[in-house]
Amino acid sequence: MSTTDTLTMPAFTAWLAAFRDRVTEQRSYLTELDSAIGDADHGANMARGMAAVMEKVEAAAPPTADELFKTVGMTLVTSVGGASGPLYGTFFLRFGMAAGAVTECDAAALSTALRAGLDGVVARGKAEAGDKTMFDALAPALEAMDAAVASGASLAEATAAARDAAAAGRDATEPLVARKGRASYLGERSAGHLDPGATSAALLMEALAEVAAS
C-alpha cells in the first residue's frame, strides 16, 4: 500500500515508463488482437509512440504536470498516426490541462484529470459505452476510482480499483459487435475478440496502479 497520498513528478514519469514497458512487452499480443478485427498495427503503433514519449520526456524533463502531459500528448499525436495517436494524444493533452501547473496530484485531482482525459477521448472518437473501444475499459475504471475516492480510499486503493474495473471492462468487450473504427466494418464478425484499444487502456490503468502502490 502507498505510503504517500499524492503522485509526484517522478511518479508521473514512472507511470509513463511502466505503460511503455507494458505496451512494448505486449506489442505482439496487441497487434494480434488488432489483426483479428482491425488493421494489425496497434502494438507497433503504441510501442513506437511510447518509446518516442519517453525519449522526449527524459530529454526535456518538463517541470510541471501540464507541461509533461502536453509533451506526452503531442508526441503521441505526431508519432503514432492512425486512430490511436489522436485518441491517446487527446487523452494526455486533456489530462495535463486538467491537472494544471502542479508538481503533484492527490487521488481526487488525479481522478479529475483522468476524467478530463476520458472526456477528450469521447469528444474525439464519439464513442459510447458498448461500442467496443478503449472507452469500455476507461469509463468503468474512472467510475470505480471515483467511488473509491468518495469512500475515503487511499490513492493506491483507488487506482487498484480502477485497474480491476478496467480489466473487467476490457474482458467485457469480447462478445461485443464493434460500432466504431475499422472493426465496425466487420459487423457481427467483430464479436468474439477483445478490443485492442480497451486492452491497451487496461494496461495504462495497470501501470498507474503499480506506480501508486510503490
Binding site: 486512430a83 489522436p86 474525439r124
Partner: peptide, 11 residues
C-alpha cells in the same frame, strides 16, 4: 471517411 484520417485532420 476513415476513423484515423478524420481524427488526425480534425486535430
Amino acid at each position: 471517411n476513415y476513423t484515423g484520417d478524420v481524427m488526425n485532420f480534425e486535430m
